[in-house]
Design a binder for these strands. Structure first.
Lengths: 157, 157
DNA sequence: TATTGTTATACTCTATAACTATA
DNA sequence: TATAGTTATAGAGTATAACAATA
């Protein structure tokens, strides 16, 4: 019988993961706010760097963002000068989204922010504990089919 | 120098926590959907059981939900017969929110769903790994000031 | 005057459908 | 006809202000 009072129950690990994940996402959003971008922008930046000349639809599918929403996000980022829309030469229906120099710079700043965020968030744990946590999370993520480096928070389910 | 390709980076533990936390929250929402309730409803149910005769404002503050939103949520739950609004005898401005029999039954079903969710979500790990993960998450949650059993996902920051 | 609950309103994000231009 | 991008629109959720009843 687990220890319990009549008034509260100790939360399980899944609930703790929900709490921590929400908190981590919130802190990351605060970290990148000074860069003028939001978490969806950050996801797009990283994916555009990974997949050069990617179409908007592919980006939308990979990130779980609706195409109609992607239009707005790309508009915002193009307006900030972070990326350019170029019509594909082979199929002029779709665009090839490319990083500008400023976009690449913002990506680098975002990755530095992510690294600092990671360090700070895990600082209560010893280096050994951090490694253990990471390994266990990787094992869980693999079994749950989570894509490498793609935030599932933009999905429509 | 960490292992990396030119195309991708291994995500840090904080990012993994965000992924897993989002996924866990989504699965929990799916689990309780057959009970006719959403995650905010679940949070209210648990808090109402913990704090009898609680006012709407106290519930809103504890859960990080705006008072104006709390009105709608309590309306929905009262409409389902899960709880009742009773005017306080001592201060007739505020209500005392009380669980009905059906509300208590739904709470019990929700707690069973949470336990099953926890078991399923952690099933890729061995019992020892599960205990280790839970301990590390508890340590992190304590250092980050996360309230016992209160989902931070309803907060306005 | 301050507080509880409530309503009204605006803004964002999600979701669907319809439109355009290309193929 | 099918697809990429876009626009329009409706529905949640978040946030702020203002209001009525009560203290």
């Amino acid at each position: 019988m687990p220890p319990s009072s009549s008034e509260s129950r100790a939360p399980g690990a899944a609930f703790l993961l929900t709490q921590l994940g929400t908190q981590a996402a919130r802190r990351f959003a605060e970290r990148i706010e000074p860069l003028g971008i939001t978490p969806p922008h950050a996801g797009i930046l990283r994916l555009v760097a990974m997949i050069p000349d990617c179409s908007q639809q592919k980006l939308a599918t990979r990130l779980g963002i609706l195409p109609s929403r992607m239009v707005v996000l790309i508009d915002e980022m193009a307006g900030q000068g972070l990326l350019d829309r170029r019509r594909s030469a082979t199929d002029r229906r779709n665009y090839e989204i490319v990083l500008t120099d400023k976009g690449a710079e913002t990506l680098a700043n975002m990755q530095r922010a992510a690294a600092a965020h990671d360090t700070d968030f895990l600082t209560p744990l010893t280096p050994e504990e951090q490694q253990t946590l990471k390994s266990l999370c990787e094992k869980l993520a693999a079994h749950h089919g989570l894509a490498q480096g793609v935030h599932p928070g933009y999905k429509h389910l």
